[in-house]
């Protein structure tokens, strides 16, 4: 599994290391009728951190870029259901 650690460092040199998934623990009431979800996840994809894209970034080979939906590894942030029980 990915690392879901909360990391809010807004350091440019750190952009590539940003986790694109954050989490928080919602309040659990004593009489909540549904089984509580103890951890909620949300996505924080790379466009939130990149700023104006600098020139000369690394690129995927073209066929791979077509498949992934972006030419830029710096903008590639795949998603999978965080609540799925494996």
């Amino acid at each position: 599994m990915e690392n879901f650690m909360i990391n809010n460092t807004m350091n440019n040199a750190n952009v590539m290391q940003q986790s694109t998934r954050k989490s928080y623990e919602p309040f659990v009431g004593r009489y909540d009728p549904c089984k509580p979800i103890t951890v909620k996840y949300y996505e924080t994809p790379p466009q939130l951190y990149l700023g104006f894209q600098p020139p000369g970034l690394e690129q995927f080979p073209p066929p791979e870029a077509l498949k992934r939906g972006t030419l830029w590894p710096a903008l590639y942030a795949p998603y999978s259901n965080p609540y799925e029980t494996p």
Partner: peptide, 26 residues
């Protein structure tokens, strides 16, 4: 939608479209 879908082929297309949203936002 990906969270509710159990169709792996469909999810490939949806993942592509989601990535395009990221690039457009950028």
């Amino acid at each position: 939608i990906i969270n509710m879908s159990d169709d792996p082929f469909l999810n490939e297309g949806l993942s592509f479209l989601r990535e395009r949203e990221i690039v457009h936002s950028q």
